[in-house]
Design a protein around this nucleic acid. Sequence first.
DNA 1: AACTTCATTACGGGTTTCCGGAATTACCTT
DNA 2: AAGGTAATTCCGGAAACCCGTAATGAAGTT
Lengths: 221, 221
Amino acid sequence: MFKKVLVADDLGSINLGVLTIAKTLGLNNVERVEYCDDAYLRIKKGILDKDPYDLLITDLSFKEDHRTQKYPSGEDLIKVLRKEIPNLKIIVYSIEDRLQKVRRLISQYNVNAYVCKGRKGLEELSKAVKEVYEDRVFTSQQVSQALTNKTTLDIDDFDILLLRNLALGKSQEEISLDFKQKKISPCSLSSIEKRLNKLKIQFSANNTIHLVAIGKDIGLI
Amino acid sequence: MFKKVLVADDLGSINLGVLTIAKTLGLNNVERVEYCDDAYLRIKKGILDKDPYDLLITDLSFKEDHRTQKYPSGEDLIKVLRKEIPNLKIIVYSIEDRLQKVRRLISQYNVNAYVCKGRKGLEELSKAVKEVYEDRVFTSQQVSQALTNKTTLDIDDFDILLLRNLALGKSQEEISLDFKQKKISPCSLSSIEKRLNKLKIQFSANNTIHLVAIGKDIGLI
DNA sequence: AACTTCATTACGGGTTTCCGGAATTACCTT
DNA sequence: AAGGTAATTCCGGAAACCCGTAATGAAGTT
């Protein structure tokens, strides 16, 4: 089984549950941190000391407090770790069950498991640890379609950027000018209109407000 | 100290932490449920059996699953309990720290404490139990301004209804017609425009899309 | 080089929204 | 009942958005 495990979660009570499960799995060397920055430092230190962690279990959202963080969210942490230490096993353990977000994490960062916090969360986490140890990918039942279902997969970064800009209150013309300045490929007002139209059809949104609201609901932006 | 306590939370691991804290506080009779409906039934049964609960600690958001619920959220549960059993002490223990939501809960339902799940969550919960036992209201530091700060208090149900309708993709004219049919007081297109303008100024939103996005972010809709 | 294809851009007219001001109505005070 | 204030409604022009079509441009094919 895994020799050295790190758990990153800012809720003390969650950590407590995870540590309990860990014991029953025969994980004897489990440490916990409450900040992503601490997680990063510990993992780097483990490598320097020739005693690296071989599993990270992390939440996605961490509350902000007085400590300013370099990696404020679990996603930031995963991003940098995947780049620097690609062979580290990572299990995400989060309340977040919106498919778009799960899909991004799995496809972009190749996390080894995605477990939803919930009534059966700890059981599933336990299963995930075993599966990941056998080099398989695990996802909770409720988000498993994130891997298979391709319905909204033809939404690219441009679409998200566009929606984010709209949600920030920019007009379509302002966005067009902004894109022109930043040399972002389709930058004409017409193209932006067309893209929005495509998105409205895909999400069956009545208008742009509806579209942005849906985008927020499903965790796209 | 409290004689009979019920904890409602769908995350097993959270419950574990809460139960641990409860013991250190000298609460010997603590039960837990994972669904709001179960909480309601137990509390009602307690009264019938002449052995009522005197404290409820509940989360706000419960995951949906195969079981269809009469009270799907903690807010629904609180609403009905406050109406039927006004003297029951209620502590909300939730990850939710958006002021608007907290404000609604405290002012509308008079919950006795609001504790944010977080790094110090369990400590604060412990403090909250003691305070509530002394008939005082407790709120976590980070949301304490929900009680004092009145900045956005002049937003009424009409505003929220309006924003919700917009987020659902209705045009302003459709909303106007809808309001006319439902006899909702200001229903003219012009009034709707004026109200939106007021909200845009209050939230310093550039346009309606921005306004709806902000509304979603702060938990207003 | 001519052709096809596809993405991007440009344009025009209709609709919705935005933003004043003015008129009307509702409600409260005296 | 008269008067005053605030909310609501009506109106009109400017701006933004919507939507279809046509023009342009950048590939790759033969």
